[in-house]
Nucleic acid binder design. Structure first.
Lengths: 119, 119
DNA sequence: CTAAACCTTCACGTTGACGTCAGAGTCAAG
DNA sequence: CTTGACTCTGACGTCAACGTGAAGGTTTAG
């Protein structure tokens, strides 16, 4: 498929797809005309990129992480344990934020329930 | 304390602290000279801001949830004057933020666990 | 008193992840 | 062959979250 179809199938703009290639995240084939040609593996790659970007990783970090995932089914290879640790650390940071917000919400709930002091 | 000490105590640059005020995240007192004056509540507020930023929330989102986050002994911040529907709305907004972060974390978990079809 | 350290408000610079537009080439359909 | 949709490569614009001086006022130690 060409860039337009990939854009429609992923919901990611053509500009963003070209940018990902520029950053080394995607390496589509090229027709003699210069047109980019993508396949289904690229579709899932783009989805993985989006998930990682939404999780707060930069394209530079994703460049390191992406090769450690098997192309077809998004599996982490066991050959990259360090990168797995990076992802775990990042998940833990998000967990920390969730904890903060949940504690806040719990305090709010007690206040709303009528108590003046929350613990 | 003044901005320099707050910066040292939080590890956040003075420029960033002024930026947070500009975005409505901090409201320090002012001396006649114009100097900003902070207290311990601002120290924990800055830490919360940093956690939420690191989790991928924007300052605009933090503006919505921060004013109703509760200080050390469960005291309401002065920026939550109305104890009725407003608090409930704020709690619900916090709930939305939690939901988004949990979705992000779930996606990360899927990738880390090597499961199929993240996204 | 002076000097160092600290603070103020502009205001332009930077980086990342794109948006947007220009000018030109490509390709399937009529 | 022509039209129109699609694509290409620059290259400048944007927005958030600051960095980095500039030019000057404030506070405190000596």
């Amino acid at each position: 498929m060409r860039i337009g179809e990939l854009s429609r199938r992923t919901g990611v703009s053509e500009r963003a797809l070209r940018y990902y290639e520029e950053q080394g995240l995607l390496r589509p084939e090229r027709r003699p005309s210069g047109y980019r040609v993508y396949n289904d593996a690229h579709v899932s790659a783009v989805r993985r990129i989006r998930v990682l970007l939404a999780a707060g990783l930069s394209t530079a970090q994703i460049v390191d992480v992406l090769p450690c995932m098997v192309d077809d089914n998004g599996l982490l290879t066991p050959s990259c344990p360090e990168l797995g640790d990076e992802l775990v650390k990042h998940r833990d940071r998000i967990g920390e934020a969730i904890g903060e917000l949940e504690a806040t919400r719990a305090n709010l709930d007690t206040i709303i329930a009528g108590d003046r002091r929350a613990g």
